[in-house]
Nucleic acid binder design. Structure first.
Lengths: 197, 197
DNA sequence: TCGGTTTTTGACTGATCGGTCCACAACTAA
DNA sequence: TTAGTTGTGGACCGATCAGTCAAAAACCGA
């Protein structure tokens, strides 16, 4: 950590790089199936360094999950905000569920594996989905102002519907549905849920 | 096993009951997080009996997964066939995704945890979803004949869309979305995807 | 009752688990 | 150079892992 005086030996590794490698390992095979030997292997760090820098396995995992959620939400926010018409952003949000394929969504995978037994993971998932619903609902309201969605729509409820459909796409990709079929489903869902009627 | 002669000691346990208890344990915490001690505890059987009757941990797991898939598919088929109008069966199928709540779907949970590394699980998931798509597509075709869905619809493509939405509901339930909100989303999705237009 | 067969039980094994610890390396300030 | 501090690597720990095995128990046909 940053020291105030008598600097001592500096770290040899790149923290962000290690977190990315560790996250990818958890992502690929899950939390329980990842051993500390796996983590030292993919990171190139010894156990002492890993523990000194990030704490135990669970703390390290939560760190990667938090970073992922933060980055993902920021990306979504930006993508939704940047689209000239909100309806295009919403379509992009929905279709993004078809993009991750076999890898799935790190948060979704972790939630499925752990949320029932790990309250910290459950709480992160709850916060993340609440945040996403809020962002999507904002975009829905903008689309309403822009005349692309009916005024009568309950923005928050509709945001949850879109989020559910998006997660369905993520799951079908994870489960092995071929990319072209997944893309077709995404297109179909977008047309049915987001077509200006 | 069934013996031909000199019958010997009969089994003390109920195979179906053991399989149910074991499945519930895997279902609750996942495959990797379940130890053999957990399995002996919930089943009441010793390790030898468990191995003698079902083989190792993975074989036992696959057995519970196969049974679950068989039962689930049979239930779906029956539910779809029994509905007087196919559109009602389809609605029931979609809404069933909101029924399992925190427990989720055993196959979906297992697929998320293992499909990326376990080809047997991946193959079971593929077969199951192909079968379900076929059943749902049959119901879609019936609904078309009954005038509740437009004739121009690609039944198989639309079946995949419904399945994706249903899995989205399952996931949102697993991730902790409160029951009443989940029910609302299910209702909304059903109205949007299955309303006779 | 008894021989033959299968089931049951739990002690046991080697491997691996997550986590700790410490000798040593690498650096800064003086 | 030296004292002080922190990072590194890997040996090591007790616990737990999945899986094996043999002795005892429980049943059958005869």
């Amino acid at each position: 950590m940053g020291t105030v005086e008598g600097m001592a030996r500096p770290r040899k590794f790149d923290e962000q790089g290690v977190l990315r490698d560790v996250r990818d390992q958890f992502w690929a095979v899950g939390y329980e199936a990842t051993s500390l030997d796996d983590l030292t292997r993919v990171s190139g760090l010894g156990r002492g360094s890993l523990y000194g820098a990030f704490g135990d396995k669970h703390k390290l995992f939560m760190r990667t999950l938090d970073d992922y959620v933060t980055d993902s939400c920021a990306g979504m926010r930006q993508s939704l905000d940047e689209s000239e018409r909100a309806i295009d952003g919403l379509r992009g949000f929905l279709m993004s569920g078809a993009g991750s394929l076999r890898q799935g969504c790190y948060l979704a995978n972790s939630t499925t594996e752990l949320a029932a037994t790990d309250v910290e993971v459950a709480e992160r998932a709850r916060q993340a989905y609440e945040g996403i619903v809020g962002m999507v609902a904002d975009a829905v309201k903008r689309a309403q102002r822009e005349g692309d969605l009916p005024d009568g729509l309950d923005a928050v409820a509709f945001a949850r519907t879109l989020q559910t459909a998006q997660q369905g796409l993520v799951y079908m990709g994870r489960s092995g549905l071929p990319a072209e079929r997944l893309a077709g489903v995404a297109q179909d869902l977008a047309d049915r849920l987001l077509s200006a009627r």
